[in-house]
Simulated scan of single mutants.
Amino acid sequence: MKFSKALIAGMVIMLGANASGQKTAEKFEKLQIDMFPKAKEGYKQVYIQLPVAKNEDQLKVEFFVGAEKELDCNRHFMIGEIKTQDLQGWGYPYYDVESKGEVKGTLMACPDKKLTKQFVTLTPEIVRYNSKLPLVFYVPKGMEVRYRIWRADSTMNRAVQK
């Protein structure tokens, strides 16, 4: 009985130490976004600040612009466009989203006609990772921007020659 309590206590301590070791502080460059234009009527400005990372040239950022909608079993996508703009005098890119939030989808018959909340997006884009520059977006109110980081595999594979 004493052995199992000691074993459990030891495991709890190890798990706690491991969990605290996994929480590393992310470093961020202090970014300025004041030079970017203000959002126009009906739009909002949002931005992504990426943490400083080792080997940033091996990373990419994929971003998704969309909204949560109640949808059926079909595959859905949002109609609109993401336009890359240049911040005049600075050379920094920013993204203007043109969309009315309209959704299109496949026309499969959904037997249960059940609706579920899904994040439906415009066509996602992949850009280079750069922690020194913010990714600035102008999106219609009611839409949001989500993103994920892509990392290159350290192993380079060869193609097979026929």
Rank of each mutant, 00 (worst) to 15 (best):
I79A: 04
V103F: 10
N130T: 09
P93M: 04
L107A: 13
T123F: 10
V61W: 01
D96H: 10
Y95N: 01
K69A: 10
D112T: 14
Q58S: 07
K69H: 04
F119M: 01
K141I: 10
R128Q: 13
N130V: 04
I126V: 15
I126G: 13
Y129N: 11
D57S: 05
G66K: 01
F63C: 08
A67K: 12
Y94S: 01
K113T: 01
F77H: 00
D72H: 15
I82G: 05
V127R: 00
V127N: 03
W90E: 09
A67G: 10
M108A: 15
E56R: 04
P140L: 14
K113Y: 06
Q58Y: 09
I82Q: 04
T84L: 07
F64Q: 06
E102F: 12
K114W: 06
Y94M: 04
F64D: 00
Y138H: 03
G89N: 13
F137N: 03
M78K: 06
Y94Q: 05
M108Y: 10
K54N: 14
A109D: 09
K114S: 11
K114L: 07
D86P: 03
E62S: 02
Q88F: 10
Y94I: 00
P124D: 05
K69N: 02
K104D: 02
K132F: 01
C73M: 05
T121Q: 00
N55S: 06
G66S: 02
K141R: 02
Q85M: 15
H76D: 03
E125C: 07
V65T: 02
G89D: 11
L59N: 02
K104R: 06
G66R: 03
S131D: 14
Q58L: 13
T106S: 06
L59Y: 06
K113V: 04
K100M: 08
G89V: 15
M108S: 09
K113S: 08
E81L: 03
K113L: 08
H76M: 02
D112V: 08
R128H: 14
K54Y: 15
L107M: 10
T106I: 01
T121S: 06
Y92G: 03
Q118W: 08
D57A: 12
I79D: 04
Y129H: 12
K69S: 11
F77I: 01
V136H: 01
L133G: 10
G105K: 03
